[in-house]
Computed example of a mutant assay.
Amino acid sequence: MMWDWHASPAARDLAVRPHVCDIRLPGVDSLLLTGATGFIGGNVMVAAINAGLARRLLCLVRGSDTADALARLRENAVQCGLLRSRVNWLTEDNVLLGALDSDFPPAVVARLSGVSQVINCAAMASFSTDPQVTRINVRDTLRFASRFAGSTALRRFVHVGTAMACGTQRGTRVSEQDAGHDDTSHLVPYTRSKQEVEVLLRRSLPDLPLVVARPSIVVGHTVLGTQPSASIFWLFRIIHQARRYTAGPHTRIDVISADDCAQALLRLAVKPGLRFDAYHLSAGARAPTIAQVVAAMDEAAASEDAPAYRKCPASELPALALDVARTERISNRRLIERALRLYAGFAELGYVFDNRRIREEINFEPLSITDYVSECMRTSRGVGILEQMSWDFKS
């Protein structure tokens, strides 16, 4: 019988008594989460708390002291949708002070030795060329994972990669076997770093109970829109306004929400047995086309008789960038143009990431962006394009 999160006694108990903050799931003694103050990690934290795992949750967090780290955790939890009535479920017991590259004191090492599951969301998720991208995503991640080599308590180490670890030389339908090689080309250091660390984790730590989860494009939240993060949604806004880009109208765009992604990561971490060691968290064959997303945005904006979206040549990008800069009153037109050229490289690939593994493993059915793009638009009102871009080009 397929394991069913919703049918489990713990999940039924939580549905009946939603005030419960400590529910026992088989085999989950201590769940360690990294990146909890980030976008995906913050949503995983909220999912874990809402699933009744608050007292079994440890979060690796930077801070001047434990109280400061806890304040950061609570702030991001609310940002990612945790009810304020549950914020106090997060206490200093949930905090492990430090970062991936920290030299931990004996007391922390002792707590790490009892961890039964790890969800490693920590990364520098930036498309900038900052050398920290490689340092954090490869060297520091490998060092952190090595702490669990030989652990007798650890049952699973879920590492969050990216579906674009496959590089740029694949067909439009990408399977999990298409990542993890050394000879792929990449558009940005971030995706290369994720591919590199995945290879090193498998080679250097063969006994680590590693499962790699590779999200596709994570945009917005099905309920909160861009409140937790505006990452990448600025591009959708530009395409919607400009009615053109370098990818064709029938090009599919494989997008999932942060909350669907978080639920999948949590389930992969706590399910007693898994059939594979790598999964795409993606829309897969149900990924909408660019034209469908634009149409959904038109409907949300109550736009009537809007011009049809069209594919444009790369030679039009300077003019497109100029239009955006004028509308948004941005002085640096070249910044907009560089960003549009960079993302054009991804959009033109038209990748659809096969998600049959995750659908069969945990009944994963992510909501299409066409169904929640209205919330992303609502929460973007009054927010500038440049401000939203900062989520992806931070350094």
Rank of each mutant, 00 (worst) to 15 (best):
E92H: 01
D298P: 01
P215R: 10
F276P: 00
A287L: 03
R357C: 04
R155F: 00
L154N: 06
C166Y: 04
T226G: 11
M1G: 14
H280V: 03
E360R: 14
T168V: 12
R378I: 08
I253R: 06
L90V: 01
A10R: 11
Q79S: 10
A107R: 03
D130R: 06
D298F: 11
Q117W: 01
V373Q: 05
V324G: 04
V44E: 09
F148E: 05
R135K: 13
S146C: 06
A48P: 06
V16P: 04
A110I: 00
D65Y: 02
S204T: 11
G98S: 04
S229M: 00
L224Q: 13
R359G: 04
I136H: 01
L25V: 13
T91A: 05
G81C: 01
C21H: 15
R12G: 04
Y279T: 07
S128R: 04
Q132S: 10
D68P: 12
D13S: 14
C21D: 15
A302T: 12
R329F: 02
L235F: 15
L266Q: 03
V324H: 05
E198D: 14
H181A: 12
N50H: 06
E361C: 08
T168N: 13
E304V: 13
V219P: 00
A67S: 13
A107N: 05
R244G: 14
A153V: 07
F104V: 02
S146H: 07
F276I: 00
I330Q: 09
G382A: 04
V383D: 09
R333A: 14
D354T: 02
S395L: 13
N137V: 03
P9L: 11
R139W: 02
Q195W: 09
R74F: 00
P206W: 05
E360W: 00
F236E: 05
H250T: 15
F104Y: 15
A339H: 09
G167D: 05
Q388I: 01
Q132W: 04
A48I: 04
R74P: 02
M297K: 02
D29W: 11
D130T: 06
L349H: 09
P26D: 15
L187W: 09
I40V: 15
A247E: 05
T226Y: 04
R147L: 15
G225E: 10
R156V: 07
W234L: 08
I369Q: 03
R155P: 11
L90E: 03
A283C: 07
S331D: 13
T379G: 11
R139Q: 12
N50I: 07
R244S: 14
P272D: 03
A300P: 02
V61F: 01
V294T: 07
T141W: 03
F104I: 00
A15Q: 15
A296Y: 11
G161Y: 09
V28M: 10
L96K: 00
L33E: 08
G35D: 12
L60A: 03
G81W: 01
A145I: 04
T222K: 13
E328F: 05
N120T: 02
